[in-house]
């Protein structure tokens, strides 16, 4: 379970999150929607531990433990996974090599023994098949020359292999065509389980037709301004964010 309490965050003296509160229960898929600049991506980076952000107040509890003091790698080992909106390229490092390094680093951090090579390959092949990732792609340098769809599938592959308990999808639908959206969504849906929760950040209702959320939160000016069920997303799609902008102006 993830609990965020009164989170206040700034970057270069600019306040981005203003006392944000949010709870995501185990097994829950929570969607966060909101207009550009409402602080959605900042929220995902702050949970994952990116260093440029200054946390002025509040706490983030993962299963009761405050993760704000942890480094990003420690948070990863504790179960936080962030599927990046723009996955980074690592030239010269084969995707397979990267996957193995990441999996073993997390196992090591948790005091477990490293995977044997046959076990590792078995796991990767099974997960890759489901995401329709060809073997050739695993041999290529990570994300180098990948299409938008390939990059996002690679993110979901990592999410599946790292077995994280709290997964954030940051605008995973951006840059995806219909087929890629389907593959990615199916990949995510297959990972839904009672002990894994998701935070799905998106602009558009479209993604939520494929990954149906349990709860929807509307974010505006660094705060959650409204929460509801999946029908809230449809309402937003119909009316846009204008209501929230006006309430801010008033």
């Amino acid at each position: 379970m993830l609990e965020i309490k009164n989170l206040v965050v700034q970057i270069e003296d600019k306040r981005i999150l203003n006392g944000l509160n949010l709870t995501v229960n185990n097994g829950e898929v929570a969607a966060i929607m909101g207009p550009n600049g409402s602080g959605k991506s900042t929220l995902s980076y702050v949970i994952a531990g990116k260093e440029d952000y200054e946390v002025l107040d509040g706490e983030i509890l993962l299963d009761g433990e405050n993760i704000l003091e942890m480094g990003p790698d420690e948070r990863a080992a504790a179960g936080v996974f962030l599927a990046f909106q723009y996955p980074l390229e690592i030239p010269g490092v084969a995707s397979m090599t990267f996957l193995k390094a990441a999996m073993n680093a997390q196992l090591k951090a948790r005091g477990e023994s490293e995977l044997s090579t046959p076990d590792f390959i078995k796991r990767v092949n099974a997960a890759a098949a489901q995401l329709e990732i060809p073997k050739d792609m695993l041999k290529r340098a990570l994300n180098v020359g990948f299409s938008g769809g390939e990059k996002k599938r690679m993110e979901i592959l990592q999410m599946a292999l790292l077995r994280s308990s709290f997964c954030i999808l940051d605008e995973t639908d951006s840059g995806l065509d219909i087929d890629a959206l389907r593959i990615v969504s199916e990949g995510v849906n297959a990972l839904r389980s009672p002990d894994r929760s998701f935070l799905v950040i998106t602009h558009y209702q479209r993604l939520l037709n494929h990954i149906v959320p349990d709860t929807v939160h509307v974010m505006h000016s660094g705060r959650i301004v409204r929460s509801g069920g999946k029908e809230l997303a449809l309402e937003l799609e119909a009316n846009g964010y204008a209501d929230y902008r006006e309430s801010e102006a008033a």
Binding site: D73, R75, F81, L82, F84, A105, Q106, A109, L162
Partner: peptide, 10 residues
Amino acid sequence: QMFYCQQRGL
């Protein structure tokens, strides 16, 4: 790049 790798546990 560093953050990306660290987010994966490195």
